[in-house]
Design a protein around this nucleic acid. Structure first.
Lengths: 202, 202
DNA sequence: GCCTTATTGTACCGACTGGTATTTAATTAG
DNA sequence: CTAATTAAATACCAGTCGGTACAATAAGGC
């Protein structure tokens, strides 16, 4: 294409650091209640003026969608790749469990999976973000289902249930684990519950 | 005692219908996002002026605590009584499952268990309500644990796990089911997941 | 007829929300 | 140099929030 994203280099140079804002916003949404975190607060924290933020992301919905996409690239994608690889089923399951029982943005207070938090806060999301959540949810279910099907073909999964149900079940349990982590429950207990619940996949 | 709750019968007669307000508030908190439902809105819906509501419940915290207590009496208590009775374990478990997979305030949109919703919205609660949630949570865990212990003594529960863990596990799965119902997922699927997850208790 | 007591609703408070109009600053094109 | 272009931040908008001062009202006691 002829439209290069190179400097058009005209007018006052941009000082707004998009990635910095996204980092701050992701951290904030991650460790706090999504519905209670205001744009004003994100502006304060990222040191950006409100009109600046609106110029970059259009509105709150645009910012949250951008944050979610960033989260997908940063956190979800590696997990999906692991599930798409040929790691043995039990090993992949163990990885999945320890991932779910430990997700946090940094070393601080536990907060669960941001995607799942957003899914739970569905009513607080704008149109675009909600659509992105739906897309990621579907993508996740497909990933689980294909993983189960491949594992079954390899003889590593023999539970008597449809692959579709298995995918839904895994999603439900991971979702539950994330909620518990976010609620502040002991990660070890969360993991123990997860192990028990997923033990029916054998 | 000498303090009868009979009409002190002095001053302007009260017209505020406490129970009506509580009903409206319970319904509202039940089927909508707790953190997004304002006192103003509850006043509008119940036809009560704001100072009237404050006189009756002190503040938002007081109202929510009163609502939670009402919910406990109305919904939770019967379930607890069932678990404290000598109903066979499998039957009680089935009751618990169909209860969890169907809780709604009326025939309308599903909304899960209000207590669990409040527990998930912990950050939006005032001090008194939060304390009440903690109390009910502890009470629930104790009920589950004693139920498991009695069932084990009757030879109806033989899974190899501590009664304490079993109680935590049941709580986690019911909580998950409630969240799914509230999120609008198909009750039949929720029930199926619940049955699968609780199948490890045998 | 008052006075006291208790409940009522209007009208307000300061703080905050998502979003924007507007002015000012910094750069390039000519 | 000026004009055009782009981005900056201040200061504002209407609306909502939880909470309250306050004057009007309705009853009993005397």
């Amino acid at each position: 294409m002829s439209l290069d994203p190179i400097k058009p280099s005209r007018g006052r140079p941009k000082t707004l650091d998009r990635d910095h804002v996204l980092d701050v916003a992701m951290d904030s949404y991650w460790k706090e209640d999504i519905g209670s975190l205001s744009l004003n607060e994100i502006c304060r924290r990222s040191g950006v003026s409100k009109p600046g933020l609106y110029r970059e992301f259009s509105n709150e919905d645009g910012l949250m969608k951008a944050v979610l996409i960033r989260y997908q690239e940063l956190v979800l994608s590696p997990v999906q790749q692991m599930l798409n690889s040929d790691v043995p089923f039990r090993e992949a399951l163990d990885n999945l469990i320890s991932f779910a029982a430990s997700v946090s943005c940094h070393d601080e207070s536990p907060n669960g999976c941001l995607f799942i938090k957003m899914r739970e806060s569905r009513t607080h999301l704008g149109e675009a973000t909600r659509a992105q959540v739906d897309f990621l949810e579907e993508q996740g279910l497909v990933t689980f289902q294909k993983w189960v099907e491949r594992s079954r073909a390899k003889g590593e999964f023999s539970a008597e249930m449809s692959s579709e149900f298995a995918a839904t079940y895994i999603d439900a349990q991971l979702s539950n684990a994330s909620s518990q982590i976010a609620r502040g429950e002991d990660p070890q207990m969360v993991q123990k519950i997860l192990v028990a619940a997923l033990s029916i996949l054998k």
